[in-house]
Design a protein around this nucleic acid. Structure first.
Lengths: 192, 192
DNA sequence: GTCTATAGAAAGATAGAC
DNA sequence: GTCTATCTTTCTATAGAC
């Protein structure tokens, strides 16, 4: 038995990491299967032992990327929900996030890209968005009476700001945008 | 002289309309030059008499599409700035906008798509964004003292909401998102 | 200016050896 | 499971006729 049972799983995870990384940076269409596999230390041919198509990879990579964001990977200490949300907002609306230095949220990096894909990809995006929204709403409800309106508006604004920030080519304009949205998000989610 | 002086301009405008339409609907990479030209009633070969490359077309189509939005194509009646902004928000955050029935704002439909392009395209996006923001700020300043923070936050939220709405595949979730952002945008821009 | 025809490159997916 | 080799399609861009 040349391949241990965990080998395939590990390889698969490596491919998903590679894909999430490249898709977020360049978009779905500008990344080839060859790119993904080489970035994972493999070659083209091995791809189809793990995924049926490039589209299937996209949906799974979306999930995988979402699971690594701060929102999904941490949770508030009981009684410290306000600080958790404040930290989330700060990290999300940071220059590092927009420039792609830190962990990148696929909701922002791939919004428009997902909108033109087939149903499975959009379903995955929808599920991740709803989870994001619910986690924020739950934490916020622990310390304030802000409603669904504020949570949805703040979420859309944060995703929008990061997506727009990546499209702008003027660093000063990006900073200004992030600062304004940061202040407004804190107000909407009652962090002040 | 088989071609009148205005012929080339008209054809060029038709190509730009076609491109803006298709790019917004499917994204840059999923639209070929052949698609654009056929949709404009022409053939492949004629393209390069008007544009040097597909990338150049993209930047110009972005401008062309932006010029047709309500924001750019109308202006407030003096003294009716509040109503103008309220109408803008209503139209922007409508189901028709998200579904692409009405005029589509390239800022929202192509955010992520623009982020991975070359400098000229991103510069064009930046210029259009700044103009959008300035027009809103000017109108808002006529009736309220809301500052740049609120204008930027509301702009990012509206663009974000439409972009996300297009990615979601659950109509009820889209409606809820639009409603929440609508209410919040009105508050931020002092329409209530 | 617009057409048809085509050169040349890239990428998704498959086949078969190891 | 992973490799190399390849089939096939698609697309940008150019060439040359009208």
């Amino acid at each position: 038995m040349p391949y241990p049972a965990t080998h395939k799983q590990n390889t698969r995870a490596r491919i998903l990491d590679s894909a999430a990384d490249l898709f977020a940076g360049r978009g779905y269409d500008n990344v080839s299967i060859d790119d993904v596999m080489r970035h994972a230390g493999l070659t083209r041919g091995a791809f189809y032992a793990h995924f049926a198509s490039k589209g299937e990879l996209y949906a799974e990579a979306l999930l995988s990327a979402a699971a690594k964001t701060t929102l999904a990977a941490t949770q508030p200490q009981p009684g410290a929900e306000r600080e958790w949300i404040a930290g989330l907002i700060r990290g999300y609306l940071s220059g590092e996030h927009v420039s792609g230095t830190s962990v990148r949220c696929p909701m922002a990096f791939l919004v428009t890209d997902v909108a033109v894909r087939e149903a499975p990809v959009r379903q995955t995006y929808t599920a991740v968005f709803q989870r994001m929204r619910e986690r924020i709403a739950r934490a916020a409800s622990a310390y304030s009476d802000c409603g669904e309106d504020e949570v949805l508006a703040a979420t859309a604004m944060m995703i929008g700001a990061v997506a727009i920030g990546r499209a702008l080519d003027d660093p000063a304009a990006v900073d200004e945008l992030l600062d304004s949205c940061h202040a407004t998000a804190r107000r909407l989610l009652a962090c002040d």
